[in-house]
Amino acid sequence: MPVPPASLLAPLARRGRDWLFEAAFPLWQERGLDRDAGGCHERLALDGTPTGHDRRAFVQARQAYCFCEAGRLGWDGPWREAALHAAGYLIDRFQRPDGAIIHAVDPAGRPVDGRVDLYDQAFAIFALAHVHATCGADPHLSEQARRVLAHLREARAHPGGGFTEAGAGPLRQNPHMHLLEAALAWMEAGRPEPWTELADEMVGLATERFVDRQTGALFEFFEADWSPAGGRAAGVIEPGHQYEWAWLLERRTALGGQDFWEHQARLYAFAEEHGRDGLRGLALHDVDVTGRVTGRHARIWAQTERLRTSVMLLARRPDQPPGACLGAAVESFCALEGFLDVPLRGLWRDRQDADGRFPDATAPASSFYHIVTGLTELIGFCEGAPLSRTPDA
C-alpha cells in the first residue's frame, strides 16, 4: 500500500515546527521587538543585533501576522503581546487621519516616507484581520481596516477594477494579490462584508487580466488600461508569485467561491516548468513570458511559496497525481533549509546568487512572513487537519 504524502512529509514538518518554536519565534520576540521606541526592527544582523534601518509599514504588519500564527500553532511564548505590540505601532505611527497608511518611519517613529503605497495598505488590512481573529474580536481593528479600504475606494479606485499606484509607474499585480489575501483573512475571521466583494474583484483581475490564457504566465506590470506593460517592464514573470496566486485561488474556493482549478493548474505548471533550477533545486527569481530565465538568483520567499502551494495541492487536490507535488514539496523544503543555515539559529539569508553563494549580511524581518506561511501549511497538512484560525489560549 502506498505511503500517504502526509506521512512522508511528517519528518520535515517536525523539523519546521522545531525551528519555529525553539529558535525563530523566541529570537524574533526577544530581539526583533523594539521595546524602547516601539514596533519591530526592520532587520537583524546575523549575530542577532538590530541594524537600525528605517521601518516600513508592511514589515510591521507581517511581524504582527507571524506572532498570530505562533499562537495558532501553539507556541507557549508571549505571542499575543508581540502581535499587539506590532499592530499597535502600525496604527499609531503609520495610519493617517484619513485612514491611509504611510510607507516608512525612522527608528524613533518619525515619518520619513509619506507615500501611500498600495502594497502597504494591503498588508495593514491583512495584519488587522489576523490580530482581530487571534487576540480577541476588537471592533476598533475592524474599523481601522475598513478605513484603509475606504481610502482606497475614494482616492485610488481604477475604473477597470483594482487600484492605481501612488506614483506614475505601471500598475502592479503584486499588491492586488495581497489585497486578496487580506480580504480572505477577514472573510475567514467571520467578517464577510465588505471583504467578499474585494476578494472577488481581485480574483476577477487575476483571471481576466493578470494571467496569460495560453501559457499560464502571470504578468507583473500593466499599462493604465490593465494591458500588459511594454518597455523594460514587459514580460517580467516571477515564479514565486505564480505559486502564491495558485494558493490564494484555492483559498477563495474553500471559502465558498467557484472552482479555479484550470487557472491554478496553469500557474503552477508554468512555474514548475520554467521557474526552477533543477541543478540547485531552487525556484528562481524571474523569467520572461516565454519561460526564458532572466534572473538565476533565488530568494527565500519563492522557496516557501513553492512549498506552501505544493503541500496545498497534495491536501486539497487528491484527484491529481501526487508524485510531482510531493517531490516539489520536499525539494522546496530542502532549499529553504539552505537559506536557514546560519550561525545563529532562527535567522536566515534572503538571497542566493547564481554561483550558489549567499551575499546577505542581515536577516530581513520581511522574510519571516513567507517562512511562516510555508511551514504553517506543511505542519497543518502533516498533523491531519487544517489549523484552527483561533488559538486555544
Rank of each mutant, 00 (worst) to 15 (best):
A6Q: 15
R15N: 04
R15K: 15
D18K: 14
P26W: 10
W28G: 03
E30S: 14
R35H: 14
H41R: 10
D47Q: 03
P50D: 05
D54S: 08
Q60Y: 04
A64T: 01
E69Q: 14
R72T: 08
L73D: 09
D76E: 15
A87H: 00
I91T: 11
D92H: 14
Q95F: 06
R96W: 10
A100H: 12
I102Q: 02
A104Q: 05
V105H: 08
A108Q: 14
P111V: 11
L118V: 10
A122V: 01
A127C: 13
A133G: 06
A133W: 10
A133H: 12
C135R: 02
G136H: 08
A137E: 15
H140K: 14
E143Q: 14
E143M: 12
A145D: 00
A145W: 00
A145H: 00
R147Y: 03
H151V: 01
H151W: 15
E154F: 10
E154Y: 05
G162S: 07
G167Q: 09
A168Y: 08
G169V: 06
L171I: 03
R172E: 04
H178C: 03
H178W: 07
A182G: 05
A189H: 02
G190I: 04
R191D: 15
R191F: 08
E193P: 09
T196M: 11
E197K: 12
A199I: 05
A199D: 01
E201S: 06
M202P: 00
E208H: 04
R209T: 12
E220W: 00
A224K: 11
W226M: 13
G230S: 14
G230F: 02
A233Y: 08
V236D: 05
I237L: 08
Q242F: 06
Q242P: 00
W247M: 08
R251G: 09
D259R: 06
A265Q: 11
L267S: 01
Y268V: 03
V287D: 07
A298T: 12
L307C: 02
L307H: 02
R308C: 15
R308H: 13
T309M: 10
V311N: 01
L313H: 14
L313G: 05
R317K: 09
D319M: 12
Q320M: 11
G323E: 15
G323K: 12
A324D: 11
A324H: 09
C325T: 10
L326G: 08
C334M: 13
E337G: 04
G338D: 06
R349M: 11
D350P: 09
R357D: 13
T362E: 15
A363M: 07
S366W: 04
F368E: 00
V372D: 04
E377S: 03
L378F: 06
A385R: 15
P386S: 07
L387Q: 12
P391R: 05
